[in-house]
Simulated scan of single mutants.
Amino acid sequence: MAITVNGESRSIAASATVAVLLGSLGFDIRKVAVERNLEMVPGTAYGATILVEGDSLEIVHFIGGA
Rank of each mutant, 00 (worst) to 15 (best):
A33H: 06
S9M: 08
N6H: 08
L22C: 03
E35P: 02
L22A: 05
V18H: 03
G7H: 07
R36H: 09
V18A: 11
S11K: 12
G26R: 01
L22G: 03
S15V: 08
A19T: 07
K31T: 07
A19Q: 14
E35C: 07
A19C: 09
N6T: 00
S15G: 13
V32G: 00
A13V: 11
E8G: 02
R36G: 05
S9F: 11
N6E: 04
A14R: 09
G23T: 11
K31H: 10
F27T: 00
A33L: 15
V34Y: 02
G26S: 10
L21V: 07
D28M: 02
G26V: 04
R30Q: 10
R30V: 06
L21Y: 01
V32P: 03
A14G: 01
N6R: 06
A16S: 15
V34H: 00
S15L: 09
I12K: 04
S24L: 06
K31D: 12
T17S: 15
A19S: 15
L25T: 01
R10V: 11
E8H: 08
N37G: 07
A33R: 14
G26K: 01
N6S: 05
R36V: 10
A33W: 10
A13T: 09
S9E: 14
N37K: 06
L21Q: 02
E8Q: 12
S24A: 10
D28L: 00
G23W: 00
G26H: 04
S9P: 13
S9W: 07
D28G: 07
R10M: 10
E35Y: 09
L38V: 15
A14M: 02
N6Y: 08
V34D: 03
I29R: 15
F27R: 00
T17P: 01
S11D: 12
A19H: 12
N37A: 07
L22M: 05
L38N: 12
A33Y: 14
K31M: 14
K31P: 04
R30K: 13
G23N: 04
E35S: 04
A14N: 10
V18W: 09
A16P: 03
A14S: 13
E8D: 11
E35A: 09
G26M: 01
V20R: 14
G7A: 13
T17V: 09
L38Q: 13
T17A: 05
V34G: 05
L38I: 14
S9R: 12
S11F: 09
I29D: 14
G7F: 06
L22E: 00
S24H: 13
V20W: 14
N37L: 08
L25S: 00
A33D: 09
V32T: 06
I29L: 11
G26D: 07
N37C: 10
A13W: 09
E35I: 04
I12H: 11
S11I: 14
R10P: 01
V20N: 11
